[in-house]
Every structure is written in C-alpha cells, then in structure tokens.
C-alpha cells in the first residue's frame, strides 16, 4: 500500500456465539497472518459478534465460477432420494 509493497488481501470468516456456523464477513489487508487476525478482530468483531475468527489469504480460496452455476449446483429432480420426503416411515413413528 505504500506503493512498493504487497499487502495481501485476506478473507475474514466469523463464527457468531451460540454454535452458529462461520460466516464470511469481508476482507482485510495485512502483511501476515498475525496482523490479519488482529485486524479482522478489530474491524469485524468489536461488537461481540464473534467467538471465533478465521482469516484466509484470498489467493488460497478456490471458488466456483458463475458458469458452474447450472450443472455444478443443479440438484436434479432426478435425485429425490436426497430429500427426506422421498422416504416413508410407519405411522406414528418419528424418524
């Protein structure tokens, strides 16, 4: 950011209290993991929103592309066995 240097981007994931899953909060610039973690905590967790924080170099993330959206994600109505409604259970039994 000084013009010469590299301040890699890090993606910040925050786990809210109460056993919830991690959520993507945004990003921070930092030279290394330790300062990325500290920055993330100061920027995204100063209101008690987090019990845990992950920082990941943006470059380390492999993402699906928009072109993938169709075939990659399509559950296919031809695979109903993935859904609980496909299965029946005897009356009165909770499964």
């Amino acid at each position: 950011m000084s013009g010469n240097g590299q301040w890699p981007l890090w993606e910040v994931f925050v786990q809210p209290p109460g056993g919830a899953p991690f959520e993507h909060s945004g990003s921070v610039h930092a030279v290394d993991a330790e300062s990325a973690l500290q920055n993330a905590r100061d920027v995204y967790a100063r209101r008690g929103e987090a019990v845990n924080i992950w920082v990941v170099p943006t470059a380390a993330i492999t993402a699906s592309t928009p072109e993938d959206q169709g075939p990659f994600f399509e559950p296919g109505n031809d695979k109903p066995y993935r859904h609980p409604q496909f299965y029946s259970s005897p009356r009165g039994v909770r499964v």
Binding site: S2, G5, Q6, W7, D32
Partner: peptide, 16 residues
C-alpha cells in the same frame, strides 16, 4: 505513515 507500512512489508518479507 510510509515508513511504518514499509517496515511491516519488510518484516513480512524477511519472515516469509
């Protein structure tokens, strides 16, 4: 702040 930013970069480069 330039010298500060440069210091952080230099430190990170050394330690990587």
């Amino acid at each position: 702040g330039e010298w500060v930013r440069q210091a952080a970069e230099a430190y990170a480069a050394k330690h990587v």
